[in-house]
């Protein structure tokens, strides 16, 4: 057994309305920035899995990503292993 660390990145799918990103983008002129576009806002989930090996741990993370962290109708996700220092326990 051991700790396996992951980062799951969840983003609105291409073509899905992202009012949060739009709101951020519309506020940029207030910061004096007019050179930025294409802002999309997603979510980052960090987690540590106690499992026998990496494939077993990853299977749990993939399941959680599709069932809980992301809604597959509107969001895409990516699971990555995190370096030990990157995820606090």
């Amino acid at each position: 057994m051991g700790d396996h660390r992951y980062v799951v990145s969840v983003m609105p799918k291409d073509g899905i309305l992202d009012p949060q990103g739009r709101a951020v983008e519309l506020s940029l002129p207030h910061l004096g920035v007019d050179s930025v576009h294409g802002v999309r806002v997603g979510r980052r989930v960090e987690l540590v899995v106690d499992a026998d090996d990496e494939p077993a741990a990853r299977a749990i993370v993939e399941r959680l990503a599709g069932d809980l962290f992301a809604n597959p109708l509107i969001e895409s996700w990516r699971v990555e292993r995190a370096a030990p220092a990157e995820v606090a326990t």
């Binding site: 899905i16 309305l17 009012p19 949060q20 739009r22 809604n71 109708l73």
Partner: peptide, 9 residues
């Protein structure tokens, strides 16, 4: 279906 943030923000 899914319910997104309102388009009006």
């Amino acid at each position: 279906g899914a319910l997104l943030r309102n388009a009006s923000m």
